[in-house]
Design a protein around this nucleic acid. Structure first.
Lengths: 235, 235
DNA sequence: CTTTACTATACAACTATACAAATTATAATT
DNA sequence: AATTATAATTTGTATAGTTGTATAGTAAAG
């Protein structure tokens, strides 16, 4: 019935291509113009096929950039000791952290409370994105007390790992005091950073890491793309 | 409607950062490349947001250097007694005067007329820039009768203040006889000195300061960057 | 007659890339 | 220490390619 419709045939053909790993996750598809030539149809007919695949979560498009194949869901363990890189590599995936912003400023009340520092003490803010297999999946915003770790940023810029940075600063172990998880919708800036749609559901975790003397080290928030991550809680 | 456009969101985010004093006036913003990473977009999209802020006079950019936060307009009082340093410090800003040129030569006709001296008497020319909170904002060109104040330059080089210099020369008070104000466009030399663009509008004031016996002391011209200064007339 | 599938065209928003021009940071040299 | 040469960084500009959106039109099906 439907199968004689052109856009549906294109949809099936592209879906098969993805299933056959002709286009792997993270890859760009040929442009809509190329595809329309390949199938001998108008660009809009291709777009109609692509639209179904986008709705199914198989593809994702970005204006000016192209259409890319979405990744399947990844498990991310959350427990006493959460280490981003280890978490990812344990599942045979490749993590990559990029700093997108850093600034020094006075602590807000909430930040000061969570870090157990004086209100208006100076803090360091570091915002990073985390790519998994080259697919942007995580945004982290860290608040770190500047008084205790004045050279944190400098080291972190080289190490790109909190675990390594803290080790170099003499903190060999740290644990999570708590983790709160809520769902949020991506705003346009988050959507751009995470290669997801505006209003895509995000998992937002808020937590404090502290050393073994229970002194807070960082107060942070991490956003995960809901479609690509599944959080797993451990005790 | 427009608010879903990426460049507009970035524009709003940056405007908020400036309003929140995350970037203070006179500060450099992170480079366009940094910002494009922070927002997860192409550099041109950031540039589009920056362009709006430049048009609004909130930012200005300098090729090879960066994008800088404009200072808000400063009120500069003009009346019987105009004192640069006092004018600026009264508004809790920091002035700084730098001599860029000085020379001795014969007076032109206009200069002689305004100073009520003989044509071709020798005069001293001093050209200075005035920074306000470290932002160059003022150029002043002073013509001073050398016969009456032969050691003016020597003292002024130390004091960098006409008021102080004249006091040391025995003139305890002086007033303006008149002030003319016109608008001019910045040429390349002025633009360089004032850190503004060529053809930026400048306020040019021409005036004579005289002692209480109505004898002219200086015949001078001052250029203000229109974007940064608002002249206020008093009686 | 209306709806649906498809074509055709045009423009806006955004990306990608490359290079020029101006400035700043760094190294080398005197 | 100061000057000079070299490299790296930053903004300005140009060009081409990609997706998003809007409008109009044609042909076939119900």
């Amino acid at each position: 019935m439907n199968s004689k419709l052109i856009y549906y045939q294109i949809y099936e053909a592209l879906k098969k291509d993805v299933a056959d790993n002709i286009y792997n996750s993270g890859d760009k598809l040929p442009s809509e113009n190329h595809l329309s030539k390949r199938f001998g149809v108008n660009r809009h007919t291709v777009r109609r096929a692509l639209q179904i695949l986008k709705n199914e979560g198989i593809l994702f498009s970005k204006r000016g950039s192209g259409v890319i194949v979405q990744a399947s869901k990844l498990k991310y363990k959350i427990g006493k000791r959460v280490r981003f890189s280890q978490n990812i590599t344990n599942e045979n995936n490749i993590p990559k952290t990029t700093i997108i912003r850093s600034e020094y400023r006075k602590a807000s009340k909430i930040e000061a409370d969570n870090l157990k520092i004086n209100s208006k003490d100076e803090i360091l803010l570091i915002e990073t994105t985390g790519k998994i297999n080259n697919i942007p999946t995580i945004i982290t915003k860290r608040i770190i007390p500047n008084k205790r770790f004045p050279s944190f940023l400098e080291i972190f810029q080289k190490e790109l790992s909190v675990t390594h940075t803290l080790k170099l600063l003499g903190v060999n172990d740290f644990v999570r005091s708590n983790t709160n998880i809520i769902a949020e919708l991506a705003d346009s800036i988050q959507a751009n950073l995470l290669n997801c749609k505006i209003n895509s559901p995000l998992l937002k975790t808020t937590y404090v890491n502290q050393d073994l003397n229970c002194i807070p080290i960082e107060f942070s928030q991490t956003w995960f793309v809901g479609e690509r991550i599944q959080l797993t809680l451990e005790d």
